[in-house]
Amino acid sequence: MPAPISRRKGEEQVVSIRVHQLTKSFRTRSKQEGLTGSWRALWKPEWRQVPAIRDISFLMERGEALGFIGPNGAGKSTTIKILCGILHPDAGTAEVLGHVPWQDRQQLCYEIGSVFGQRPQLWYHLPPVDSFHVYGAIYGLDRDATRRRVDFLVDVFELQHLLHTPVRKLSLGQRMRCEVAVSLLHAPKLLLLDEPSIGLDIVAKQRIRDTIRYMRDEEGVGVLLTSHDAGDIEALCNRVIVISDGQLIFDDTMDELKRRHLTAKQVNVRYLEEGERSLPMAGVETVAAGRYGMQIRFDPRTVGVDAVISGLHGLGSMVDITISDPDLEDIIGTIYAENALDPDAA
């Protein structure tokens, strides 16, 4: 086992998650394709260890909102499951709110809330209010305390008209709002969210983000959010960890992520007259071109913004122009590219 993590004085008060060289792999049977492969595997199975996470280390402060981003199969869910006490790691150490999750799971669960986007907690055939009361009992709250907390959450999450409707009749977005609300029933200090916006449309995603942000700001709930949607991370987190192929490849603030990797500006321009246009300048890349406009990308460290604007101005009478930073999706793509990783590998 690796050496325990050294702690500074008073660190217990400010650190909510401490992870050191966490490693986990799964034993998987490999099989050749087809019936012959299945027959062979039946009598002579071949096993291999598939690493899920490798030597991951990070700290998370109390009340912090930390985003865990990476493609499918990167190890995000495995990490969050270890931190909830669901899985045991092969090596490494971890502490969540002072508890070793896989040794002190029950005590830890009173202090954290968790939402797994792919694993609903609410009873499918019953209205959410019944599930709220069961979870109140599971968390050891008396009926009055549960009722008071439910009233508060119903207000914050605007669940008034959903509370008595069977879950099966709710939309995915409405259901997920109820899922997040039930995870906050016992006033946890830390919320672990694994893909809470999976499958939601943009409006539903925005409502989930708003309510999580409200609870983070009003109740000081720490948030550890895993998602492959960069928008979730950008909206909720001030720090981001990028993980791919089980390894941590970036760990810093959102601002630092943008400063280091936001090396391009994107320009959308629209002209009054129809025509074919191009801007043949070194360091300028045409992303898309149409009859009335174009989209270009350039690196402001090598090409001046004023030179690009002058060049575009020389191509005709402009009616509209916007200069923007690329989406976080693009930045993450750049990080994968720098680490020679395939973002679709899963």
Partner: peptide
């Protein structure tokens, strides 16, 4: 928040199972 650590939650589960059925 004050918590009860007994087995009362089992009764709550049985109740919700019956409601669901």
């Amino acid at each position: 928040m004050e918590r009860k650590r007994g087995l009362g939650f089992v009764g709550a589960l049985w109740r919700v199972n019956l409601l669901s059925a």
